[in-house]
Write a protein that binds this DNA or RNA. Structure first.
Length: 756
DNA sequence: CTGGGTGCAGTTTTT
DNA sequence: CTGCACCCAG
């Protein structure tokens, strides 16, 4: 198909001109060799990437199977796939025969992790056979129980000292902040968290292990712990998120991988090779992902990366905007060639005043002018949307206290609705750092909205454990296995014991409330407890040296759910979803094998050898590992998959959640975020000397911390289409001289706008 | 408008 | 434990 036909078919479905001579057109029509597309907010970067893929398939007649397209999140990947299917549908409608020639479903599109898993599966790569990819919770439980870093703190003490900054934060379980007494190791939860951070860093940072080993005893020990953790994963056929990428990189360098990348002329249908690699959200790429992309495209050099260096938000995950800023450098390093740079700088999303505000905002910070902070030669944003009007498109709302500010905000939304400036509350969004409904965070805002008769939509408020059905299910479970809460006595640390028993008592009260309406539930719980009691008694009298009771956690849990009120609750999809999540967590815990006895799992209730009861050690581990983790983590409510916010609900979200989205009215709260050098920055610096690809950019920690904050607000501000309204309680202005530091400048800038 | 005392709550994000 | 939001006295 010629491009002109392609354009004629699609143009009626687009709200902009598809022009091959425009900057967008040049991206779409770009042929061979590496290209980076630097695209500002609202410039249609995903649309451009999608059209490029369509042109590759329909105009340039590239086999879909040889095109790889990836992005950062599942949601974004789904969005891209949907758009491609929609546009491809229009093209097929005009040329039905093409359906037989172009199989759109062959396109390799998804998050990098899902592609890694799929491709290695397809090629039956021996390094990744029957592995279970662990999610965050599983990795946590697995690491806690299988890593010597956690299990043998004496040996790895030097690492704790070396990375003491990983133990500085507040620990919700022990109620302590920081690692106070260096005569003792940090507690097991802190050690687990640190182990995961360090292990993930080593993998994601593409670390040269030999260089690290030679750097000193603590580094040598770290590699020892890392290797031991990886041996455990291999032994138990498990894999974590960074490691699947590491294995994939090994696959790409293997014989099979070569066939995948370069193709197999004897079977071109099955192994066409990789012709094009297109990566969206490239600014959040980490070194191992960069290595994967350059490996995938090594045959043709057709690597197209799309992103906005100013919207990099994922340093905590090892993401480094450096990958974007130094893309050209990387192309020279890997392939000895230069890349083409394209800039999409017309914003089609926002009112010109907002575009201006965002652009001036990011350029007003001297720290953003440092070499390496932004892509060189990046043009200013220009406004291209049809939104006009002389109303105050950038404004702020003040209040004496947080509560006042929240009420003024809710009144403003009410006003917008009453005067039909907006038709639906879901045209707005409230963006803030934490959406927990506590007084410092979203609490007052959610309440104020409700007072105005506007329901907030806040599925990520992490109120999992506070939900009646969850508390009741856990309470029933504990009532069966440990009615007197004896196992809690095995948890070390007074404060920790208190916190855990406080929570567990809450659950038991919730169970009591549920049982009050359901005698059958109470019957079951009492009988089950009795049965376990009898069974352990028998085993004890028989002097049975085995400890298997023959009952699993899952059995008990599902029997609980089979009774009222849980049965009735299962008609509510949200409650069902939450109970399902709890069962998944139980299942994850249950499936963790014991270190010493293969074939036996945590999920099997164990009897004590010394007393007629459930094993104290088993109960202790249950509280320590599962209950402790549940209390510390906080889980989110189910979210509607395709809907950002249901009708008549006002979404409250974090800036990260809002990334990639747009709203007519955006309210931003929490402009007083302070510059702090977080642990991700320390880790970056600590691991930098061992990276296989050395960094070209050297910025001091404070500069990187400041840039992160500027980018954070930039993402928030640039979500707004019609109006951007900042919410500022007086307390946030105190002790912050305008113009002083990042926050002061932030505050100075909003003061130049209108007060509502 | 400032400073000290009191009371309460305790990041966030992804695969 | 630390840090902030808020209150009230000056």
């Amino acid at each position: 198909m010629h491009f002109n036909e392609f354009r004629t078919i699609l143009q009626p479905h687009l709200d902009y001109e598809l022009d091959p001579e425009s900057e967008q057109g040049r991206v779409i029509m770009h042929g061979e060799n590496p290209m980076q597309v630097i695209a500002g907010p609202g410039s249609g970067k995903t649309e451009t990437a999608v059209l490029r893929v369509l042109v590759l398939m329909f105009v340039m007649e590239i086999n879909p199977k040889s095109i790889i397209m990836t992005t950062f999140t599942e949601k974004a990947a789904k969005n891209m796939r949907d758009r491609i299917l929609t546009y491809a549908g229009f093209l097929f409608d005009q040329y039905p025969d093409l359906r037989h020639q172009i199989n759109i479903y062959d396109l390799r599109i998804g998050t990098l992790h899902s592609l890694c898993a799929d491709i290695m599966q397809e090629y039956r790569y021996t390094g990744y056979q029957n592995f279970r990819l662990m999610d965050e919770m599983e990795q946590y439980l697995f690491t806690m129980q299988h890593s010597n870093f956690v299990q043998d703190p004496e040996r790895f003490f030097p690492i704790f000292e070396q990375f003491d900054y990983l133990f500085q934060g507040y620990d919700p379980i022990s109620g302590l902040s920081g690692w106070r007494d260096h005569n003792y190791p940090p507690n097991q939860w802190q050690r687990t968290r640190a182990a995961i951070l360090l292990f993930n860093r080593i993998t994601e940072g593409v670390i040269d292990r030999n260089r690290m080993r030679q750097a000193g005893p603590a580094w040598d020990l770290l590699i020892e712990a890392y290797d031991q953790y990886h041996r455990q994963m291999a032994l138990h056929q498990r894999c974590d998120f960074p490691t699947i990428q590491k294995i994939f990189l090994e696959f790409l360098n293997s014989h099979v991988g070569r066939r995948f990348i370069e193709g197999d002329p004897s079977e071109p249908e099955i192994h066409p090779g990789i012709a094009h690699v297109i990566v969206d959200e490239y600014q959040d790429t980490n070194p191992i992902q960069e290595a994967i992309y350059f490996a995938l495209a090594r045959g043709t050099h057709n690597l197209c990366v799309v992103g906005d260096d100013d919207q990099a938000l994922y340093r905590f995950r090892g993401g480094t905007v450096e990958c974007m800023v130094t893309f050209d450098h990387a192309c020279r390093h890997y392939w000895g060639m230069r890349s083409t740079s394209r800039y999409l700088s017309v914003n089609y999303r926002s009112h010109p005043a907002i575009v201006n505000y965002c652009d001036e905002y990011i350029r007003s910070f001297p720290v953003m002018g440092i070499k390496g902070a932004r892509v060189e030669g990046k043009p200013q944003l220009s406004a291209g949307s049809s939104i006009t009007g002389t109303y105050p498109a950038v404004a702020f709302i003040r209040g004496r206290t947080i509560e006042d500010t929240a009420q003024n905000f809710a009144r403003c939304v009410r006003y917008l609705l009453d005067n039909h400036i907006i038709e639906n509350a879901n045209q707005c969004a409230l963006l803030m750092r934490s959406v927990k409904e506590s007084p410092r965070n979203a609490g007052h805002f959610a309440d104020a909205l409700r007072d105005q008769g506007i329901l907030p939509y806040n599925p990520r408020s992490r109120q999992f454990l506070e939900q009646e059905e969850i508390a009741a299910a856990l309470g029933a479970f504990v009532s069966i296995i440990d009615r007197n809460l004896q196992g809690i006595g095995g948890v070390r640390g007074q404060q920790i014991r208190d916190n855990i028993s406080h929570k567990v008592e809450e659950w038991i009260r919730a169970y009591d409330r549920a049982a009050a309406t359901s005698p059958a539930l109470r019957n079951y719980v009492d009988e089950a407890r009795q049965a376990i009691q009898t069974k352990t008694q028998e085993m004890f009298q028989r002097r049975d040296r085995k400890t298997k009771i023959g009952v699993s956690m899952g059995d008990v849990y599902y029997h609980i759910l089979a009774h009222e009120p849980f049965r009735g609750w299962q008609e509510d999809p949200e409650r069902t979803y939450r109970l399902g999540q709890l069962s998944a967590i139980f299942e994850q815990y249950a499936s963790i094998p014991y270190l010493d006895s293969p074939g036996s799992y945590r999920g099997d209730l164990r009897a004590s050898r010394d007393r007629p009861a459930i094993s104290f050690g088993w109960l202790k581990d249950f509280y320590n590992h599962l209950v402790g983790r549940l209390i510390a983590s906080g889980m989110n409510d189910p979210e509607e998959e395709d809907i950002i916010a249901p009708p008549n609900r006002l979404p409250i979200m974090t800036v990260h959640q809002a990334k990639g989205l747009e709203f007519d009215f955006v309210f931003v709260y929490g402009l007083n975020r302070d510059v702090e050098v977080e642990e991700a920055i320390h880790l970056e610096d600590n691991f930098e000397p061992f990276r296989q690809t050395q960094s070209y950019i050297h910025m001091i920690q404070d500069q990187r911390a400041a840039q992160d904050i500027v980018r954070f607000y930039y993402v928030a501000y640039s979500r707004a289409k019609w109006a951007l309204i900042q919410l500022v309680p007086d307390a946030h202005l105190r002790k912050r001289p305008p113009g002083f530091g990042i926050i002061g400048r932030n505050l100075q800038r909003f003061r130049m706008t209108h007060q509502l």
